[in-house]
Design a binder for these strands. Structure first.
Lengths: 177, 177
DNA sequence: GGCTATCTGCACAGTATGACTACGTTTGAT
DNA sequence: ATCAAACGTAGTCATACTGTGCAGATAGCC
């Protein structure tokens, strides 16, 4: 469930340079290829790495406008609303949150005018009582994971007594020159 | 800037089965390998596909709690606040939104108790006037892009007169058995 | 008609991949 | 102290994919 320093370095390396293969990664990390393969297999079966799908930029697809909508849902209509929102392509994600049965969803649109169409489609459903929309102007921190991975790896390095591969110094377990 | 049907099928295919290579993708799509390579190169230089980095699950890393925080910022402190939030690993993304200089950020934490620590760190900064946090309970629609890609591909199929590769029927341009 | 862009089919050398083995080290239990 | 399990290393093997370049065919455009 938690990752060690080598896992962390591997994930960060793959996040920075996704095109490199297992062999190149093993060279960069200074470990054997089999080790990298085993770590990757484990990370994927753990679910830490869910996959290597393409990161698609909605803006480049022609959807440069992003917005977040907070929805207030009528009691007991939650699952209907979810099913409805799942059918809208412009709904990129949907969360239910604390607060009185509210939901938060991320929307994209082709333009500010098109956003109106999207919102109409989103809220054009009986279960939705009210919607508040915030349009994104800037994105100073795009969705990222590397700092968290680094922190998770450091945290586990604290337990390093039980794990020589934790290897905070980065060299200790390389026995052969 | 916009994608045609083949691009769309390629992206969807890669999103569903990221492990397949260019050759296998060309077989699945029924086109030549060079075509797939050319499309991929174009999609990446267009910025439509930003990369193939690993999709890391924060929950599996030990951060199962997600929250969204709406921040109200003191006039003129925006860039300071951004820099501050960028240093917090648990801040996975940050947007500035419409409303009076507000920001919306996505947080993760190790537990609800830990979330308090994260929020304290986030709002422990002079420029932040007020923060409202919504904890995510469920995630009925995880971050997705496939429906949008499919829609973008269909939209461009409307212009298909100018692009035989638009190929709405999916077979028309396969000349050889 | 002639041009450009695109796709096909094919070839090449270089390289990565998955699977496997044998062996040394570390860890924790008996 | 001793043992077994887990892990990493180094090496091998056959297979498969990659990047690249080429000529030829097709479609749309001026």
């Amino acid at each position: 469930m938690s990752i060690d320093g080598l896992d962390g370095r591997l994930i960060v390396l793959l996040a920075r340079e996704p095109r490199i293969g297992v062999l190149e990664a093993s060279r960069r990390l200074g470990v054997a290829r089999g080790t990298v393969q085993a770590r990757l297999d484990r990370l994927q079966s753990n679910g830490v790495i869910r996959g290597f799908g393409p990161a698609v930029d909605p803006a480049a697809l022609g959807y440069p406008v992003t917005a977040f909508a907070t929805l207030e849902i009528k009691q007991g209509q939650g699952s209907d609303v979810r099913a409805h929102l799942a059918t809208v392509p412009e709904v990129l994600e949907l969360h239910t949150t604390t607060g009185q049965g509210d939901m938060l969803c991320r929307l994209v649109a082709r333009s500010n005018a098109d956003l109106q169409r999207v919102i109409d489609r989103v809220v054009g459903f009986e279960g939705i009582v009210r919607a508040a929309t915030a349009i994104v102007m800037e994105n100073p921190v795009p969705l990222r994971i590397i700092p968290l991975v680094e922190q998770a790896a450091e945290d586990s390095a604290g337990d390093a007594a039980r794990d020589s591969a934790g290897n905070p110094a980065g060299e200790g377990f390389v026995r052969k020159g």
